[in-house]
Design a protein around this nucleic acid. Structure first.
Lengths: 191, 191
DNA sequence: CAATGACTAACTAACGGTTGTTAGTCTCTA
DNA sequence: TAGAGACTAACAACCGTTAGTTAGTCATTG
């Protein structure tokens, strides 16, 4: 019980302040216990971070399968745009999104490898969703005859760019960027 | 003399470790003096960071005017691609690029406003370079009849995405993304 | 049924180390 | 002879961590 609370509060602290700028005092305070009591549940700060990372990884994989994917009955552009929109919304609104942004971009040295591994896992999960859509689109002639890798790469760059812009620009500017980027991307891949 | 050395070494430390994870001891060591001697040149850590930020801002503005811009004799796609390539190369290879990446996306709270101001200034500088190119392109019919804002927004998202990917993926993956993203972007705005 | 022992999870106190910062001193140079 | 710029020594505050204690819970046992 307390263990789960520690993970949750730590997630939000790590997401907002990064690993090194989050102190055990802050975590303990938010949980409502004293600092040394944390050691009843975790071996130390690194163990807390690891637990948070594992938790986030598991939850992200699940979200990817359930929330991001959309019914295949839609047309290709609706389908793609749906994924685009859902994924960005998830990154924007969830604490996991902010956490991911923090730690993938400037990871604490001792976790760099593990974080990269988790991130690539999540990315692969998304790739498995969008590749078939691109391929189907090419087959039915709705998309240009670009390689699937090209489309996937461009799609990711798009998402990464917005991912990054989301917490920097005011919401209205961000919305403009989101719409504009999609429009140009779609014109770029559409047959 | 020493003052300038402090700024330079601090720039690289702030760029690589962030503000909070850079200690005065580290700076002093790299400069080759003892920690308290820093106070002969700056009021404190915050003052050092401010000086670095000002320095970077000035240098970035100059780079933007000289290195990024390319001769207008080229065709529109060469011109745009030149800017794209030059700007990304600058962000990738210069210490200022890494510094910018660090501090714009996860700024130390007390500098958030100032950093944003500087960033938007640099961005505006780039906007002044690319907007006329888009408009010229539309006039000559080489580009689609999209609004200039749409093109500019999409261009920035593209750059921001690669900006992020550059220090995360291995160089080869990054190069793939860079090429693919440009291809789709160009197909998206080309008439 | 009552008592014992093990376990969990909280606590206080304190550790050594590092942080940014200040005070005061010495030395070279203009 | 000033002053600039280096130094040493020390500060309080905070860091992650450890040790040792205490209270409550639960299962096993006489």
């Amino acid at each position: 019980m307390t263990r789960q609370r520690i993970i949750e509060e730590s997630l939000s602290l790590f997401a907002n302040h990064g690993y090194e700028n989050t102190s055990l005092t802050m975590i303990a305070e938010l949980v409502g216990i004293k600092k040394p009591s944390l050691y009843n549940h975790f071996k130390g700060k690194e163990a807390i971070f690891s637990a948070v990372l594992d938790d986030v990884a598991a939850r992200e994989m699940e979200v990817m399968q359930t929330e991001i994917n959309v019914p295949t009955s839609d047309s290709i552009d609706d389908q793609l745009f749906g994924i685009y929109k859902n994924y960005l919304a998830h990154l924007s609104n969830s604490m996991e999104g902010l956490f991911f942004k923090r730690v993938t971009f400037f990871p604490p040295d001792e976790f760099a490898e593990e974080i990269k591994r988790v991130f690539l896992l999540v990315e692969e999960c998304l790739t498995n969703i969008i590749r078939p859509i691109f391929e189907e689109g090419k087959k039915t002639g709705k998309l240009r005859a670009l390689s699937t890798d090209t489309m996937t790469s461009a799609f990711y760059t798009l998402i990464d760019g917005l991912f990054l812009e989301e917490n920097f620009y005011p919401r209205e500017v961000f919305e403009t960027r989101k719409q504009a980027s999609w429009k140009v991307f779609w014109l770029g891949i559409q047959a």
